[in-house]
């Protein structure tokens, strides 16, 4: 197989219908149809609403991607699709579509891990990933630290959140502050106009927690602390300073994420850190990671925000890596797995 495979990737694990096309490490198309606006009034993603939207958007999004890349389905070397983790009904739409395209066009099919794809997408921006690398994955559904020995077949989980994902904490705090869904961009905007004045807790950073949970995260206590702080203000009849609460909450999240990621690099002697997932679009996380990595001589790689949130290009990027390394394709009966483990890269 060619070293610069042309791969079409399909992503439907949550509320974005994504179809991307890459050639080797070169991004050719990244078409995304989002149902986020339909979920906003419910304060979170409603799985059935997302699945219905995927069915409607699937084929038109494939068409957009092929048109943007100026290639035909017949030109594609392989099709990759997110097999998990994610919303079960949503995953099934993308996987069934991928199987149909693979069957019709006679192309090999790769069912891949969504989290590994969030790491692989960086290759589209910064070229081949130095291995080993440390990866920090932060989104509405996941917060994980990984050691990436090989994108194609060697990802080792170092730690993950014990409760809420980082993006979930953003959504919940945004709701407390009456900012709506999704919370990340709203809090990031509000925080840019305030300063860090409130000392919110940093979960799992005390010495006794670090012994067992050095690379794990916990954000539910932080969310509760913010809610209590806001409620105390409201009870006292005082206005809630949204910008300061946002900035202080955001600092607590980003402080813990970057401190643990840098610690994972330093402990293992690994000098490359990749950050992926929707929360990697956060301005403070990017700035703080850059500052701390520079201080410790770590090469930081964060894809541009449009590649951090869920998309099909990341799935294509991982697929391209798998094809180039000669990985065996999946079969037409490959299953979806809503709880797919991060160390399982293909099914």
């Amino acid at each position: 197989m060619t070293a610069q495979p042309l791969v079409l990737g399909i992503e439907t694990s949550c509320d974005e219908t994504g179809v991307g096309i890459v050639r080797g490490h070169t991004l050719l198309a990244n078409a995304v149809a989002s149902s986020v606006a339909e979920h906003a009034r419910y304060g979170g993603v409603v799985p059935e609403v997302a699945s219905r939207a995927h069915l409607e958007a699937m084929v038109p999004t494939v068409h957009r991607a092929l048109a943007d890349a100026e290639v035909a389905l017949a030109d594609i070397d392989a099709i990759a699709v997110t097999a998990g983790p994610g919303l079960a009904g949503a995953l099934l739409v993308g996987v069934a579509a991928a199987k149909a395209y693979a069957l019709a066009a006679g192309k090999p099919l790769y069912g891949v891990n969504h989290l590994a794809a969030h790491v692989a997408v960086d290759t589209l921006e910064h070229g081949a990933l130095p291995e080993p690398a440390i990866a920090l994955l932060v989104s509405g559904g996941h917060s994980s630290l990984l050691r990436v020995d090989s994108l194609a077949d060697g990802i080792v989980p170092l730690g993950s959140t014990l409760d809420d994902a980082a993006g979930e904490a953003y959504d919940k705090v945004a709701r407390v502050l009456g900012m709506g869904f999704p919370g990340g961009p709203a809090i990031d905007r509000a925080a840019s106009e305030g300063s860090v004045t409130i000392a919110f807790p940093r979960g799992l950073t005390a010495a006794r927690d670090l012994r067992e949970h050095r690379f794990d995260f916990s954000f539910s206590g932080l969310k509760t602390a913010v809610a209590r702080w806001v409620e105390a203000r409201e009870r006292a009849g005082e206005p809630v300073p949204l910008a300061e609460v946002s900035a202080s909450f955001q600092e607590a999240v980003c402080d813990v994420l970057t401190a643990k990621a840098v610690d994972a690099c330093r402990t293992s002697g690994i000098t490359t850190l990749v950050i992926g997932g929707g929360v990697a679009a956060n301005s403070r996380l990017r700035a703080l990671a850059a500052e701390r990595c520079a201080r410790h001589g770590i090469d930081l790689r964060v894809p541009r925000p449009g590649l951090c949130t869920d998309n099909g290009a990341m799935v294509a990027a991982l697929g391209s890596q798998l094809v180039a390394e000669g990985a065996a394709p999946g079969r037409l009966d490959l299953p979806t797995n809503s709880a797919m483990r991060v160390d399982v890269i293909t099914v």
């Binding site: 699937m58 739409v93 069934a96 579509a97 395209y101 069957l103």
Partner: peptide, 10 residues
């Protein structure tokens, strides 16, 4: 949906 997305994509 599995049947319909399969048929539509094919």
């Amino acid at each position: 949906r599995v049947g319909l997305v399969t048929a539509t994509a094919l």
